[in-house]
Nucleic acid binder design. Structure first.
Lengths: 146, 146
DNA sequence: GTGATTGCAAAGCGTTTGCACCGTA
DNA sequence: TACGGTGCAAACGCTTTGCAATCAC
């Protein structure tokens, strides 16, 4: 895993390569997301981002997250409580382990799933195109504090 | 699996046992949900339900679905596109297989998951409390029509 | 009869859109 | 300089709440 400064830099380059301009609001959003290992709502990104660029607008947060998602740099996360679209940094397609208390996210490989997918596909006759596997629980730190 | 009429009857009894009154709007919502094997949004329940009870209000649909969910008779479903809370009939805790085209839902057991949960729990130090496993794809009928 | 339930209307909330101004390239 | 990007304000869609009328028990 890249360290956080490298990650910000990579993401900004990526934006540039895709023909987008590098502006202060975008830099703020990228830094917030690239430096976070927890799930963040757009409103949270906005709050934290304003610490880096005071004039940041919520609308720009939405628009920037949308671009980052399209570029595969962030990922939309759904949670059982309500259904706010949460966002997290991610590399590659992996599965999520989310702390219900602090929002921290870990990734794990899902290779164990292939056999199950084949079986379900055979039993049901469905053609499976996509899947969600998410675990919710408490991370080490939150287990101690609860 | 109970047939659909039995299921409606059971759900209505369940409502009564929990101290709720059996009203026409509630009967309409229960019948819609109990007779459907597809994922439905509150608005869809409302539309179909008005065929059974014309004066049905959308507000009542929300309130009834809330009660049915609390009683474990329906289940909230999250989908990748947007995040509308969809609902489906369910018995027991199983995993979902959802047709992306027609909304049809099947359930399958997730016993194969236990080993994976143990492994992830051990590797990460998380205490896993809940999980989502949902497959999205095309059911047999929709494969033919696409 | 009476208290739970309903449906309308309005409020609430998160997200998206319209538009004039701004700032990067 | 030109045009992509920004932020404000307003629109939007879905969900929840307030309240008087209604209806199951």
């Amino acid at each position: 895993m890249l360290n956080q400064q490298e990650r910000s830099r990579t993401w900004l380059q990526e934006l540039k390569h895709n023909g987008y301009r590098l502006t202060s609001p975008r830099k703020a959003v990228v830094e917030v997301m690239a430096n976070s290992d927890t799930v963040l709502s757009p409103a949270e990104v906005y709050d934290i981002g304003r610490g880096r660029y005071a004039k940041l607008g919520l609308v720009t947060v939405y628009r920037t997250l949308e671009k980052l998602e399209a570029m595969g740099l962030v990922q939309r996360v759904h949670r059982p409580d309500g259904c706010e679209a949460f966002i997290a940094g991610v590399e590659g397609h992996q599965h999520l382990l989310i702390c219900e208390n602090c929002g921290r996210v870990e990734y794990f490989g899902g290779d164990k799933l292939d056999g199950l997918i084949d079986k379900v596909q055979g039993d049901s006759g469905y053609e499976i195109r996509d899947h969600w596997l998410q675990f919710f629980g408490l991370c080490r730190a939150c287990q101690r504090n609860n």
